[in-house]
Nucleic acid binder design. Structure first.
Lengths: 154, 154
DNA sequence: TTTCCTGCAAAAGCTTTGCAAGTAC
DNA sequence: GTACTTGCAAAGCTTTTGCAGGAAA
């Protein structure tokens, strides 16, 4: 999401990361995915292009990416195995669906929701917690009408 | 949080759960904790009262609790092993601290932040996503001034 | 008495690590 | 040439599962 195609090299460069074929494919897979893939799913996507790629490399790269703010882990529902990843590192809104998947809210709604939170409240919170607050995300748990919530929000 | 002491039996009863010593101690540990304990930490707390308790029982009970909305899992930072749990199932605000822990925002700030999101936007989102939206939570990533974000929001 | 829960132990699954070979810069 | 990455395989952890015995209602 943050960058496309040939700009990937520049993104990595800015982070002091070497641009390898594996990382490039992984980042592309992450950026192009509209859902929130697991490490395993990303592995499969990258493997289509680089058959010999190792799952350990996927994990290592995801770790490095997240250290540099190029992706983030997102909460997953109980029972969903593994973590999920997201290349959208900007403030946004997630919705957990009844089937256990997690989707982003549409961009415009996402922005309106994020922006509806007064900056002054955020500043107050930062003050109280004694830290600088950077990324924000809002999660909703979606369920079908009448369905009993299973509480497995994350 | 939801209930105290002898009310625990009633809480379980309402959910159709049997009130065992293990579950009672676990729920109490969860409710009294101001941080967000891992299963392992809860295990240790319960074990002080019930030396023979099994970790599998802790997991089973946490699973059952979350199915009945008595607790929820919360996002954890990368590198923190295991999930963390929270007996506060009401809408609230989490802050991930630089040390990897996650804390609740103070109650009053939490409420003001949650309430600042217009119900109409939430309704619009529910409409678009085609689901009923129940629980909401807001997460912030806190960092020390000047510290580079590790992106491990979750 | 019936049904549900616990404890144990083993299994399963996700993620990390060590190291030698290979690659980016 | 140097420092960083990869792939492999093994280890490490967390979480789940099967089952017999035990406890709650």
């Amino acid at each position: 999401m943050a960058c496309e195609g040939k700009d990937i090299r520049a993104v990595f460069g800015r982070c002091g990361l070497r641009c390898t074929r594996q990382r490039e494919m992984l980042y592309r897979a992450l950026a192009e995915s509209r859902s929130h893939p697991t490490a395993e799913e990303l592995f499969e996507i990258v493997r289509e292009r680089i058959p010999g790629v190792s799952l350990a490399t996927i994990y290592n790269a995801l770790h490095v990416f997240s250290e540099h703010g190029l992706c983030r882990r997102i909460p997953v529902a109980w029972g969903n195995r593994g973590c999920r990843f997201d290349a959208n590192v900007f403030d946004h809104v997630h919705v957990s669906l009844p089937d256990g998947s997690t989707r982003d809210a549409p961009q415009d709604l996402s922005e309106r929701i994020i922006q509806s939170i007064p900056r002054q409240l955020v500043a107050e919170l930062a003050e109280v917690m004694g830290v600088e607050l950077s990324k924000m995300s809002v999660h909703f748990e979606g369920r079908r009408d009448g369905e009993f919530s299973d509480g497995a929000f994350q």
